[in-house]
Design a protein around this nucleic acid. Structure first.
Lengths: 199, 199
DNA sequence: TATGTTTGTTAGTACTCACTAACTTTCTCT
DNA sequence: AGAGAAAGTTAGTGAGTACTAACAAACATA
């Protein structure tokens, strides 16, 4: 691992944990097994370290490509796949998301960056539901509303488990909660249980 | 407003906004229209200010009393009332919750404190659903799972709107999203639309 | 008016932090 | 082995920060 990468990796971990002010260049250098001088030789100042770290450790995915080939037009399996993918993306970007929550208004562009995935995902879910409706597999509904509620549910689960309470509130496993959330939406979108009763 | 209160009010606002390290005693004093010396005459150190501020500005509610008299055993109205109450509580405690997310691991007891409401609410929802089931108004289900998903949905909505994106992702109003979320769970809990088909 | 209490002011301490300069050591690659 | 690049070392600067000491002003209450 290059010196740059070592520094950035430690930086994003520490800033996510302690905040931008709380993470000192000295500590970052130390944890990266690098002298503080080296750190400043690689980056002009602390703020640029954060920006570079976000740049390096924010994993951007093109939703379309992620899903295009995986959707099989089975509501349960598709929703489950979508939810699981969502959590995979969020977990990969956990540190950046934490930083966005606490430092969002000081790092220009960060909030928009972090909001790109949810917005993309929303659009994708809407399109998916519309197609499912065309195929007469789900009922009519306000799909934007449905998509947002599905996302908020996933988001709440993610934030709660990642940053606040761990498993203090419930002993249910993440997997079970995700499966449960999918079933809630299945009941919502196929109230009669099967496709032939739709319309 | 007393000097103590002025200081604490400004302190919790600023710490929520800038983090514990980012909010300086000088700025807090200034914004509270008080000399820095006065601030230190009222509180022994900065950390105690935060603790006192949390103590003063975390509004603790006894869920039971909040709901006891309001439940009318109409799933839609009750769930809506529960969700709205939840948001009211969260908004009142917005600053403390923000601080809990970013400073949780440095302030002993804070996370537990902030998690009390969700846990209480979870238990209350479970009990409510069990009673609704007894009255044959909803079907059998894993009520803990249902309660958690309902809470995660509300939580996701709250966090997203309060700390991250405002209304960037969707133009739907908070009220509409809440109503939508309630309907999702109604469909889940009363799949045949009415109570006579249950069991 | 007199007295005790609360605030303001000023100056300062001790410390930490981001960041730099100058020089030396280690590493890398031919 | 030798040269150039990257890293370490040491010492330091200047700004900011939590917090204090000492004294003066403002305020409140009787």
């Amino acid at each position: 691992m290059s010196t740059d990468e070592k520094i950035l990796k430690v930086a994003i971990d520490m800033i996510a944990k302690k905040g931008f002010k709380g993470a000192t260049t000295k500590q970052i250098a130390e944890k990266a097994s690098v002298s503080e001088m080296t750190l400043f030789r690689h980056f002009p100042n602390k703020k640029k370290i954060l920006e570079a770290a976000i740049d390096r450790y924010y994993y951007s995915f093109q939703m379309k490509e992620l899903f295009e080939h995986k959707l099989i037009w089975d509501l349960e399996k598709d929703l489950l796949m979508i939810a699981e993918t969502y959590h995979k993306i969020m977990k990969k970007n956990k540190n950046v998301i934490k930083i966005a929550i606490q430092e969002g208004h000081n790092v220009p562009g960060l909030l928009e960056q972090v909001n790109k995935h949810p917005r993309q995902l929303k659009d994708l879910i809407i399109k998916y539901l519309e197609e499912m409706n065309k195929r007469e597999l789900i009922i009519n509904a306000d799909y934007e509303l449905t998509a947002m509620n599905f996302l908020y549910m996933s988001y709440g689960l993610f934030i709660s488990r990642s940053f606040v309470s761990g498993e203090i509130i419930t002993s249910l496993s993440e997997e079970d909660v995700i499966k449960g959330s999918v079933h809630v939406f299945i009941d919502h979108l196929t109230p009669n249980g099967v496709s032939e009763k739709i319309h």
